[in-house]
């Protein structure tokens, strides 16, 4: 942690590799959350009932 990070330059964009990895990780987790099956739970309604307004 005491050494400078490596930087990536894409045109006018300059970003450190650790920050780039965090952003890529967030994108991956977001995509996984969209497509990963959610376990069935008894508290989840199976019909299209609405939350009582």
């Amino acid at each position: 942690m005491d050494t400078p990070a490596t930087y990536v330059q894409l045109g006018f964009l300059v970003i450190s590799v650790p920050n780039l990895l965090v952003i890529l990780g967030m994108v991956l987790v977001f995509l996984a959350a969209l497509f990963a099956p959610f376990p069935a739970h008894h508290g989840i309604e199976t019909d299209h009932d609405e939350h009582p307004e």
Binding site: L34, A36, H41, G43, E50
Partner: peptide
């Protein structure tokens, strides 16, 4: 209290996006 502490959620809440 039924809104504050619900025991059931709508079907569309069954997604990991709602866990964040």
């Amino acid at each position: 209290l039924t809104h504050l502490l619900p025991s059931r959620q709508p079907f569309f809440v069954g997604s990991w996006v709602y866990v964040f």
